[in-house]
Write a protein that binds this DNA or RNA. Structure first.
Lengths: 213, 213, 213, 213
DNA sequence: TATGAATGAGGATTCATTCAT
DNA sequence: AATGAATGAATCCTCATTCAT
């Protein structure tokens, strides 16, 4: 008599083992044998539950994105002002569960793989689109539509850059500092708005740093 | 006597082919056969000139970083004010030669590989250290030492994040827009300084977005 | 569940195929492909069961030495006098199973490889030590300790030389003749002892052939 | 203007380098690049002077055998009695120039390769035939034709076995000891002749060790 | 005479996948 | 449901050989 309900347990085991294996040995070196050994099961089981290695990798990326999304949704639900909603995005991005060794390395590996896998690429685009549209919607309550789009893109890039820094130099940044850098960006952009006046867009032809001095 | 002086020619050929192969097929799929075919030479030549695949990959990353460094040095040499020096870093990062498809993908691949290769990691750390210390030195002329460090870190993260965005969604960003986002960040941080007054640091305990509104 | 207990079967298959391949094509030409084809299995299986070619070669040498050792132990157990024990060593060395084409060629190949492989060297030293100490112990019942050591070394060299002759010129010697040559040596040394008197060692400063004539 | 008379110089350089390379790394690992580097010349030169690696190896074995033969001829020329001629063979075999590390290892490597190379095999057979017929001729002056053949074979095997011992366990035997073991053999066989009487062959049906006790 | 650049076949090894049990 | 035996294609690398200079 087969054990019942093993599927969700095994799938989670294997996905966790995949993240750990990528962290420990790298994306290309995360072999089926490595992952299954780490999960304490046989190598054949991966094909039983996922159909193949590629599907396991896709499921793992989906799992990482889902965790992040869950974190984000929970915080957005509790946010009542536009500012709080922007901050919720920042806080979700640097929540301790997400912003930690194994997850960062795996995340960076998937990002690097994205351009060469339609499946992973699709997952990434959906996620990126959701974050940006969330940010834009919140920012529209504070600035013009155009500036909202620009600041949303800038904040998304800043968050990604801070993640990348953490993945490449884990000791050089902690979640609290990362959060502060992201808030600095928003604060700075809003300060520019106040200085320019509420009804005008930032001049896209300005000379940048020199002009601001 | 055989043809002399082929070494630099072949090495450049092979490094260029490696960047192209990573862009076209991904880091793990950039095989010796792929790369040598793309360079129009035999596979054995890679071992003749580099000793092995790993050394070719390291040389390729070194080459990418050197190109970026050369771009940066040239622009810094022409910059006369602190503001111009900060802008030089931004402009070098998004110079057309660097900020293009193949280079971005390869760059992201190397970044993802960094945690699993001491050689690549060392190269990355050296580069990151140089950029940050350059930025800090320039910014110290404009703001306090602490703020200079913070803004340098933030700008570096922003630049990296914009690169990552470009690598993952090549159609979503162009060099000019990327440059503008990075300048926005600097402009914003300087605006915050003016608002806070020249002699005071940003309050590290502030509540972020909500507090800045 | 998969087929169980295949390991000892496959290992023996592969070791036998290795001996045959060395005999047929030489040590360096005993490739993984050759061996696996001869065993009727795929090439990957060697790494599954042995971990690599080197380990297979070491296991093969170990197997050859174990067979010889088994032959020797069986004969020693049946020998009741010192003379019979010496003869047991000779008979074991030239037993039909051992003293045959494939085994001889493989044996010689391993001997030649010994100086360049710590693993093989260790195996060889253990075997050589065992044979010599066996012979010495038996001979001590017949002659002085010093002469026992000398005759043991001489007999061991004679046996090895006869093996080498058989490996290099298989048609020039048969097991019975080889056995006779080895016995001649022992008979001769014991005859010298009788001629010199039981209480005296052979004079190590003697002039050799000329002096004995 | 090409350098004149380079051929013999280069050939000797390369043959010496081959012996050294075999000693240092083993027969299969003695690559063209290794050998040419050791000789201080380019790899292409081997094909220029020998036509290929196999021919270089054959020339090297021929060189080793020629050296041994020269040693033997010189000593035989000085020997005036049958006993002295037998001793000359022994002394030539263990002459310091021959009985040393690199030569032994190389010699053993060639012996092991012999069964798989018609060229090497032919060289070996010629050499073996010469030594044996020399020994037989000398011994016929001392014992019956049949015994001369037997003792010649036995002595040849003993010499080869002592070489093999030296190659496998270089520290366990020195030339002087080796020479003594070989002389012991001859002394013993001649002692048996005296005991049996000058006109009778050794009884080929004797029980060996037991019978001699 | 001599070089070393260049080739490509062949080596050991790794690995995702299949499948009988 | 689960195993691990077995496969064979693909990878990196080595190497004897060729050849233009």
């Amino acid at each position: 008599m087969p054990k019942l309900g093993m599927q969700p347990i095994r799938r989670k085991q294997l996905i966790d083992a995949t993240v750990a294996a990528i962290h420990a040995h790298g994306f290309a070196e995360a072999t089926v044998k490595q992952i299954s050994a780490r999960a304490g099961v046989s190598s054949g089981i991966i094909h039983h539950y996922f159909g193949g290695k590629d599907a396991l990798l896709a499921a793992t990326m989906r799992s990482l994105l889902t965790d992040l999304q869950r974190e984000l949704v929970a915080r957005l639900a509790a946010a009542e002002t536009p500012q709080a909603r922007v901050e919720a995005v920042i806080d979700a991005s640097f929540a301790p569960d997400q912003f930690s060794g194994a997850v960062q390395t795996a995340w960076l590996s998937f990002w690097a793989q994205t351009p060469h896998s339609p499946t992973l690429s699709r997952l990434a685009q959906v996620y990126l689109g959701r974050v940006r549209s969330n940010l834009r919607a919140s920012l529209r309550a504070l600035v013009s539509d155009q500036r909202a789009a620009e600041i949303a893109d800038g904040l998304a890039a800043m968050i990604d850059g801070l993640w990348l820094t953490a993945a490449v130099s884990p000791t050089s940044i902690d979640p609290e500092t990362a959060r502060r850098r992201a808030r600095d960006y928003i604060d700075g952009q809003l300060a520019l708005e106040r200085a320019a006046g509420p009804s005008r867009d930032r001049d896209e032809t300005a000379d940048g740093v020199a002009g601001a001095a």
